Amino acid sequence: MLTLVLLVASACTVVLARPSLNYLEEPYATESTQAGSEEVRSAAIKRLLAVFGMDDPPAAVTHRRKQPPQYMLDLYNTVADVDGVTKDPYLLEGNTVRSFFDKLRSEQVEFRFNLSTVARTEKILTAELHLFKLRPQATLMFNRHHFYQVSVYQLLDTTKTNTTQMRKLLSSRLIPVHSNGWEVFTITQAVRSWMVDEGNNLGLHVVVQTLGGSHMDLKLIRFASGRNHHQSKQPMLVLFTDDGQRRSTTLESADPDTQVTAILAQSPMAAPTSSRSARSLDHLAEEEGVSMPCRRLPLYVDFDEIGWSGWIVSPRGYNAYHCKGSCPFPLGQNMRPTNHATVQSIINALKLIKSIETPCCVPDKLFSINLLYFDDDENVVLKQYNDMVAGSCGCH
């Protein structure tokens, strides 16, 4: 499924038929032609959504009103380049990262997160509670305590009177009194139990104590709350998961879907000006009867043109590239041929078997891309998708 955008190059012996897009170019197109084209476009967009693991696009979000957490932006920039292509496949734990804001919006140190958007089939790798520690009030700066202990508990049963039955310790450590900024606590155990039984999700409770075990003055030790502080400092749960789709890059054969391929390869949304010179060379070569050698050409997928800019944060689009050209005998090493392709080209050249065609010009290296977007609950998701960009082409 993830090789959808690369289907242009998946069958070199088939000439892809371009679906009718005349309604985009000719003002006098018939209604039936327009309806047919709309159906093709709708089918193509639906298939593209399936590539990104969605049935329907998330609801659009006004970015000026809703900003993604800085942590998620920084994480995206760490793992992806400007076009969303993965810098290093081992930088990200799993293939999905989600951020959730506290739903209680309480002034107290209790938090609850709605994880209904996480599929039960996903493997929970790591869960982190991010709390922003505020500076202590100036009048309380001079305090004999230099460190304090912060403990995060999972609430188990609020009807129990015994403290040990009400909560379970998840994480605990010492923090300087006069520090400020983000503090991160691992709460993986709690989230895994919530995914097994949604009814277990009663929330989290944070306890602040001195080294001697007595409670600290909450005016001295303050964390930003979801009610009284800016969105950039609100309590947040960050969840790293793997949906099982992460695998080593392979070049599996696939039947070409001519409608979807043509939409992506030839419609206005996929035709950047940078590829004009390459297309001009193609037309010139065809007119002169010259077959250009196998090479990589641009294939830009523009999310703005598709109408997805309302929920995708980054990238605005990406260059999937595609492979085009001939694989004539003899195959040079610059065409990166496999041994099988070399033998096939020899059989074709010698006409030993009439039905044997020349090898195909196809991707021989594929890269993943990263998408940063808002889901239906306005949580920000960073997801990595395999086999989305043709890194190089060869004769196979």
Rank of each mutant, 00 (worst) to 15 (best):
117 T>H: 10
110 E>H: 08
161 T>H: 09
159 T>F: 13
208 V>L: 10
146 H>T: 14
166 M>K: 15
168 K>M: 07
194 W>P: 05
174 L>R: 13
166 M>R: 13
180 N>H: 13
121 T>A: 12
189 Q>T: 12
141 M>R: 14
191 V>T: 09
177 V>L: 09
170 L>Y: 02
156 L>W: 04
200 N>R: 14
125 L>D: 07
184 V>I: 15
137 Q>A: 10
173 R>E: 04
189 Q>I: 02
144 R>C: 07
154 Q>C: 08
145 H>S: 09
212 G>N: 09
173 R>K: 15
160 K>A: 13
123 K>T: 15
135 R>E: 10
142 F>T: 14
207 V>D: 09
165 Q>S: 09
146 H>G: 05
198 E>W: 11
131 L>G: 00
125 L>I: 12
185 F>V: 03
160 K>C: 06
116 S>P: 09
164 T>Y: 07
135 R>F: 06
170 L>S: 05
128 E>C: 04
117 T>P: 04
132 F>N: 04
130 H>S: 00
179 S>Y: 00
205 H>L: 13
151 S>N: 04
126 T>A: 03
180 N>G: 05
128 E>M: 09
177 V>E: 05
143 N>T: 14
190 A>P: 15
192 R>C: 03
192 R>F: 02
129 L>Y: 02
144 R>K: 12
136 P>K: 06
110 E>V: 15
138 A>E: 14
184 V>W: 04
114 N>H: 11
147 F>Y: 15
122 E>R: 07
211 L>A: 08
155 L>Y: 06
195 M>Q: 13
154 Q>Y: 07
113 F>R: 10
208 V>I: 09
193 S>N: 14
145 H>G: 02
191 V>M: 03
113 F>S: 04
157 D>P: 06
199 G>N: 14
157 D>I: 01
113 F>A: 05
129 L>N: 00
170 L>G: 04
167 R>W: 03
187 I>Q: 00
186 T>I: 08
141 M>E: 14
199 G>Q: 15
125 L>A: 03
199 G>L: 06
169 L>D: 00
117 T>Y: 11
200 N>P: 05
149 Q>M: 11
151 S>L: 00
200 N>W: 03
182 W>V: 10
119 A>E: 15
150 V>C: 11
209 Q>W: 00
162 N>W: 01
184 V>T: 13
162 N>P: 01
148 Y>L: 10
147 F>K: 11
141 M>L: 15
134 L>F: 01
195 M>D: 02
